[in-house]
Write a protein that binds this DNA or RNA. Structure first.
Length: 734
DNA sequence: GAGCACTGC
């Protein structure tokens, strides 16, 4: 018997050899006996592929299918494929999957893998999830925004009314061995079922090269490079995975690895990027897919592979053969700052659980080592125990609208596993009110019901619905699609490419009229679609073809949704005559009046949202350099780096937003805080202005107005305020 | 005159 032989990949995944197999009967029993169950088990336990099969074979889905959610598309697809193979069935029949743009399931699908976002959409269409008997939320420890919303929604196991005569839904939450007690107590101290994992030990080492004060990119990149070369020269065979924060940093680190290696008298070859047996490969999301694929090719004999990656390698991509991790301790994270009303992308220390996750990437096929460049002091003082869940650090506008549409009116006391700050919820409500998606009482308006159907942020949805009402959706659909996919324009890291790319981009800008970034996106979309060879056209113009291609799919999806909604009798219609670009701008104004700014001193602008932040036009905008000729603008997003920049900008006329601006100050968070709690009765509505809240509200409002006036003592602002006061008076009278 | 992590509907 060849006992010494390493088990092959196939044997490794043999269902009966997985750790979960021994617990099969007990698991099935636990699901039968409990409405809620937490299952924990680390990577390799087999829970994702096996548990649904056990439940299916035990006849637990006679009255409805089993839905298994995943935070990522690829995971949903590949797991479904694997389970099909194991069961010997055709994909899309008994076992299937559903992700955006790709539904591989039928009415008879009994085990359905899907993204958490798809599950949320299904709940919107069928609040009782009547086709399901069991819902399994997988990877709950990742705490994705959608999973968190689902966790809360399923806590009530969906109201009896919405399930009709059906048996209540069973809920299984699967998570890595973190925070399982918290999950259990969230679901009324439900049982926790633990399955041992099957990973190899990874030795952790603090290299003590940076401490709490070293947060400069240049500092930690240098140390990361040093450690990586040390590992290469002193450790046994096995590939290295290095974690850094972004494209620029990764390219820099790769360059430094070559240079340093050279001074160490390594032979090195620029063309195949190898240095004395070290193959250096960058890896980040915006890299072309074929280049990404190189990462997975096994390195030639005697050559060590070194992948320098962003967090994409922490969960999304798994590279076999990694035995060493070099961890910088940092990550780039998008945080919503409700105090200034901005989303800020910033480099922050990772959490201890994230460090653990990175470490685990080295122990998938053999024992490994993890080198942390920071010291224990950094670990203790800078790194939080857990990553703040997404729901506590993103803008909640879409989430709140979804909840409201599902009949969750009290969005503050909704059962969140971790409550978002009240302020975040209130600003979301305020935004929804400004977009006419909810009324003063916090109830969803007919428009809000239309808005929730779109997989877009509310501002874009608002613009799109306005366009549809004006029968000019053809120009807004592509813009909305282009704005909701990854970055369209290629901006190379090296100076030579930069000039060429810039020249090509300004050609397009000129063609689009040279003074509107939104129109420029429309132009790229249309030109590319009209081209015989779109991918070549993109390459020639330094445009990401992958992004435009997905914009094409998004556009047609949005178009389908719009067509469906237009059948509704209450779909709004309006009339407007004007040029194409004027029409576009008018629609955009309705979606972006919360992002209006007016030029103040020199090239800077001042936002009108009440925060009165000072902003600049980003150099990548086609309006950069034309600031002095501009007065009012709207913008799509904000980038905070050395200064506060806005990108994707459109000049507007004051008249277009004049009637909308007062809406920004008409209602404030104090008013909404009671609305949010549904504490306001009809009577209270009448008296409530006399209350303390009203006083604070008035003060806050006047304060905001004072600040606004101080910054813009132009007649137009005073005019806007006068109109607002007039309306308010009017409202009081009626 | 600067530079965008990663997901998802």
């Amino acid at each position: 018997m060849p006992k010494t032989e390493k088990p092959s990949e196939k044997d490794n995944h043999e269902p009966k050899k997985l750790p979960i197999y021994k617990h099969k009967d007990k698991l099935v029993q636990a699901v039968k006996e409990n409405s809620f169950l937490i299952v924990t088990g680390e990577t390799g336990s087999g829970k994702t592929t096996q548990l649904p099969q056990y439940l299916y074979k035990a006849g637990l889905c006679r009255n409805g299918r089993i839905g298994v959610t995943q935070p990522r598309r690829v995971a949903a697809i590949t797991v479904a494929q694997r389970v099909c193979q194991e069961m010997g069935v055709q994909l899309g029949e008994e076992v299937g999957y559903q992700v955006r743009f790709d539904d591989c399931s039928t009415k008879d699908t009994m085990i359905k893998y899907m993204t958490d976002g798809c599950m949320l959409r299904e709940i919107l269409a069928d609040p009782g999830l009547s086709q399901y008997s069991i819902v399994i939320l997988d990877e709950a420890h990742e705490r994705s925004l959608n999973t968190d919303v689902l966790l809360g929604l399923l806590k009530k196991r969906l109201s009896k009314a919405s399930r009709g005569h059906q048996a209540p839904l069973k809920v299984v939450v699967m998570s890595a061995t973190l925070e399982t007690e918290k999950l259990s107590s969230f679901y009324g101290n439900c049982p926790v079922f633990t399955i041992p994992g099957r990973t190899y030990p990874v030795k952790e080492k603090f290299c003590n090269l940076i401490g709490p004060k070293d947060k400069e990119s240049s500092v930690y990149v240098k140390e990361v490079v040093k450690v990586t070369l040390d590992v290469h020269s002193s450790e046994a065979a096995g590939d290295i995975l290095v974690f850094l924060t972004g494209q620029a940093e990764i390219e820099k680190a790769c360059d430094m690895l070559f240079e340093k290696a050279e001074t160490l008298n390594y032979r090195y070859d620029v063309h195949d990027r190898t240095v004395e047996g070290l193959l250096i490969l960058p890896l980040y999301g915006s890299m072309p897919t074929d280049q990404q694929r190189q990462i997975f090719q096994p390195s030639p004999k005697g050559v060590r592979k070194c992948v320098v990656a962003t967090n994409i390698a922490a969960t999304s991509l798994t590279i076999d053969g990694i035995r060493y991790i070099v961890d910088s301790g940092f990550v780039k994270q998008l945080n919503h700052n409700s105090r200034v009303g901005l989303d800020i992308l910033e480099v922050v220390p990772i959490s201890k659980s994230e460090a653990q996750q990175r470490t685990g990437r080295a122990g998938r096929t053999a024992a490994g080592k993890c080198f942390r460049i920071y010291n224990k002091d950094f670990w203790d003082t800078c790194m939080p125990n857990y990553t703040i869940p997404e729901i506590q650090r993103t803008s909640l506008t879409s989430v709140i609208l979804t909840l409201k549409c599902l009949g969750v009116h009290d969005v503050i006391r909704f059962p969140y596993l971790d409550c978002p700050e009240e302020r975040f919820i209130l600003t979301a409500l305020k935004q929804l009110y400004q977009f006419d998606a909810i009324d003063r009482r916090g109830h969803v308006t007919p428009l809000g019901r239309l808005m929730v159907e779109f997989p877009l942020p509310p501002n874009l949805t608002r613009a799109l619905l306005k366009a549809a009402a004006l029968e000019c959706e053809d120009i807004v659909l592509p813009v909305a699609a282009m704005l909701s996919v990854e970055n369209i324009f290629i901006r190379p890291g090296k100076p030579e490419g930069q000039k060429e790319a810039e020249a090509r981009h300004s050609e397009i800008a000129a063609f689009a009229g040279g003074s509107n970034d939104f129109l420029m996106l429309l132009c790229v979309f249309e030109k590319c679609r009209a081209s015989d060879n779109p991918s070549a056209w993109c390459k020639e113009h330094w445009i990401h073809w992958r992004a435009v291609k997905s914009a094409f799919s998004v556009e047609s999806q949005l178009r389908d949704i719009l067509l469906r909604l237009k059948q509704r009798k209450d779909f709004p219609h309006e009339k407007f005559e004007g040029s194409k670009s004027e029409l576009l701008r008018q629609c955009l104004c309705l979606g972006y009046f919360t992002n209006v700014a007016r030029r103040s001193v020199g090239k800077s602008f001042c936002t009108m949202d009440g925060h009165g932040s000072s902003i600049l036009i980003h150099p990548s905008s086609c309006l950069f350099g034309q600031e002095l000729q501009l007065d009012w603008i709207i913008f799509h997003d904000v980038l905070v780096t050395s200064r506060v920049y806005v990108r994707t900008v459109c000049p507007i006329r004051y008249e277009w937003v004049m009637d909308l601006l007062p809406k920004l100050h008409e209602i404030d968070v104090y008013e909404l805080s009671s609305v949010a709690r549904e504490e306001v009765t009809d009577e209270e509505m009448v008296h409530w202005e006399k209350k303390e809240a009203a006083k604070r509200q008035a003060e806050a409002r006047e304060d905001a107005a004072r600040k606004l006036e101080k910054r813009n003592d132009e007649s137009s602002i005073t005019e806007a305020r006068a109109r607002y006061l007039e309306r308010k008076q009017h409202r009081r009278r009626t």
